[in-house]
Simulated scan of single mutants.
Amino acid sequence: MALPKKKTSRSRKGMRRAHDGLTAPNVVYCECGEPVLPHRACDVCGNYKGRQVVNSDDA
């Protein structure tokens, strides 16, 4: 089994793992005031970009 010749420093390990952090989801607010993920129709009122795309009885 292959082994590293040198110990990986804390700094180098941290630089390698710099992109592993989680990011919070971006949230926009619908006209009705509910938080919605971007580029998705609102679950409550069914609006997307100011127009009705899903019937409120379906949502």
Rank of each mutant, 00 (worst) to 15 (best):
D43F: 13
D20A: 07
K6W: 11
P25I: 01
R51Q: 15
H19M: 08
E34D: 06
D58R: 09
Y29P: 01
V44P: 01
H39Q: 14
D20K: 09
N47Q: 15
G46E: 04
Y29M: 01
A41P: 06
M1Y: 10
K6D: 09
V44M: 05
V27Y: 07
S9Y: 03
H39I: 04
K6V: 10
P38I: 05
L3V: 11
K5Q: 13
N47K: 14
G14V: 08
P38K: 07
K49I: 05
M15D: 12
T8K: 15
A2F: 12
V53Y: 06
A41E: 05
V27W: 08
P38V: 05
E31F: 01
L37I: 02
V53W: 06
T8F: 14
Q52F: 08
S11Q: 14
R40I: 07
A18H: 06
V36Y: 03
T23H: 08
G33L: 04
V27N: 01
H19F: 10
T8G: 09
D58A: 13
R17D: 12
T23I: 06
P38G: 06
Y29S: 00
R16M: 08
A18S: 10
K7H: 10
N55A: 15
K7N: 10
G50V: 04
C42M: 04
C30G: 01
G14I: 10
K5Y: 12
R10T: 11
K7T: 10
S56Y: 02
R17P: 00
R10W: 13
A59W: 08
T8W: 12
N55D: 15
K7D: 11
L3F: 11
V54P: 02
N55T: 08
K49L: 14
V54S: 06
E31D: 07
T23S: 13
M1E: 11
C30D: 02
D58Y: 12
P35V: 01
T23W: 04
G33S: 02
P35T: 01
P4I: 07
L3I: 10
Y29C: 01
Q52A: 10
E31I: 02
D57E: 15
A2R: 12
K5N: 13
Q52S: 10
G50M: 06
P25K: 02
E31G: 02
L37V: 02
T23P: 00
D58T: 11
M1V: 08
S56D: 01
S9C: 07
L22T: 00
C30R: 02
C42V: 03
P25S: 01
Y48N: 04
Q52V: 07
D20T: 05
H39R: 14
A24N: 02
R40F: 13
L37Y: 09
N55W: 11
C32N: 01
M1K: 11
G33E: 03
R16T: 03
V44E: 04
G14D: 15
V54F: 08
R17G: 07
T8N: 13
V28T: 07
D43I: 08
N26R: 08
K49D: 11
G21Y: 08
R40N: 14
P35M: 02
